[in-house]
Amino acid sequence: MALLELTDVTRSVRLPDDRILAILQGVTLSVDAGEHVAVVGRSGTGKSTLLNILGLLDAPTSGEYVLDGTPIGRLSGRARARRRGDDFGFVFQQFNLLPGRTALENVAAPLMYARGKTFWRRFTLAAQMLDRVGLGDRLDTMPDKLSGGEQQRVAIARALVRRPRVILADEPTGALDVETGGEVMSLLDEIASESGAALIAITHDLAVAARAQRHYRLAGGVLLPIVLNAPGQVTEWIGDLPVSAPLATAVPITLEEDRA
C-alpha cells in the first residue's frame, strides 16, 4: 500500500469576480515510503498548492487523499494538524526560520508540539539533528548570522527532527547558488534516505529534480509523469516543457528571456 495517494484531486478557488479558477485538475499521485519524487513546473502552475494539499495545509476541492490508509477528508482540523506534525516535515524556499531564535531553538520548535519524552528531550534531539547536518558548532547562532546554505541546513534539521514519514521540499534550493544548492540537496537526499522518509521536492530546477527516482511535470494544474536525464540524454526546458535530447545533440542552453 502506498504511503500517500492522491486520486483525481482538484483544487479551485473562486475569484473576486465570481469566476472559478482551477489550480489543480485531476491530479493522481502515489508515493511509497522512502521514495524520492520530484515535481517540476514553472511558477504559477500549482506546484505549491499541490505541496500544501500533500502536507495537509490545504484541502482538495474534490478527489480523494489517502494517507497511510486514512482518508484525509474524514479527519477533523485538529486531527489533520496532529498528522501534519507527526508525519510531515517541511523545507521552504525562504528557509522560514523563526527570527530571534537560535539554530537550536529553531530545530527544537517542532518538538514543542510533540508529546511525552520527545517533548521533554527536545533540546537534546535538536542538538543531535544539528550535529547531523554539520552545524553542531553553531547551536547558539542566530539565523541572521548564518549563510544561506547553513540556514537551509538548519531548516532541513528542523524538518527532520520529528522523524517525519514524508519530507515536503518547496524549491529547497531556490534561494541558494548552484554549488550550495547541490550540497544542500545531497544532504537532504542523504538524510531522507537514512531516516527512510519519502521526499517530495517541487522545483523548477531540473538538476535538483533529476536527483529523484520518479519525476512529474505540473503544467496548467495537470500532473504528468516524465523522464528526466535518461542515460545518454539531457533535459532542458523548452518553453513550458522539459525536453530530453541526446547528449551529443543537446539543445543549447537557452537564456531565460529566450524561453519566454
Partner: peptide, 16 residues
Amino acid sequence: IREIGIRRSFGATSGR
C-alpha cells in the same frame, strides 16, 4: 503571521 504559519506546519492546532 508568517511565524504562526510556520508553527501550523509543525502541527500546531488552531486551539494551540
